[in-house]
């Protein structure tokens, strides 16, 4: 059982966290513009590297905030963790209310 460094709470037990799979996948800007193949890729296809992997974790039983982590899937060692969203990514942005 590992210690995972939450950017807000510091190192905490793995059991406080929930795994969220691959990071940095943006919800498509316009899903209706995608063909079935493209939509399936967004829905189901994820990287599965043996080695460095950028992931999402949620500090579920703590501050409940999502974080981004870089971890080695062979050793499970976390190279870094940081706030989710602290990196460039493209995302569909539902407009804010006026």
């Amino acid at each position: 059982m590992q210690l995972i460094t939450c950017p807000w709470c510091g190192p905490r037990e793995e059991t406080e966290f929930r795994y969220g799979g691959q990071a940095d996948l943006a919800y498509p800007a316009d899903p209706s513009a995608l063909d079935d193949e493209q939509w399936a890729r967004f829905l189901f296809f994820r990287d599965n590297p043996k080695g460095t992997f950028a992931e999402r974790w949620c500090h579920d039983a703590g501050c409940r905030r999502w974080l981004r982590a870089v971890r080695d899937t062979r050793t499970y060692v976390f190279a870094e963790t940081g706030p989710y969203g602290s990196f460039p990514r493209r995302s569909a942005r539902p407009e804010r209310s006026a």
């Binding site: 929930r18 969220g20 943006a26 919800y27 999402r56 949620c58 579920d60 409940r64 905030r65 999502w66 989710y84 969203g85 995302s91 569909a92 942005r93 539902p94 804010r96």
Partner: peptide
Amino acid sequence: LDWMEEWLQTEWPHLR
């Protein structure tokens, strides 16, 4: 609740 938080925090953090 987890589902809503996930969208809010990871996809649309600009939403207030």
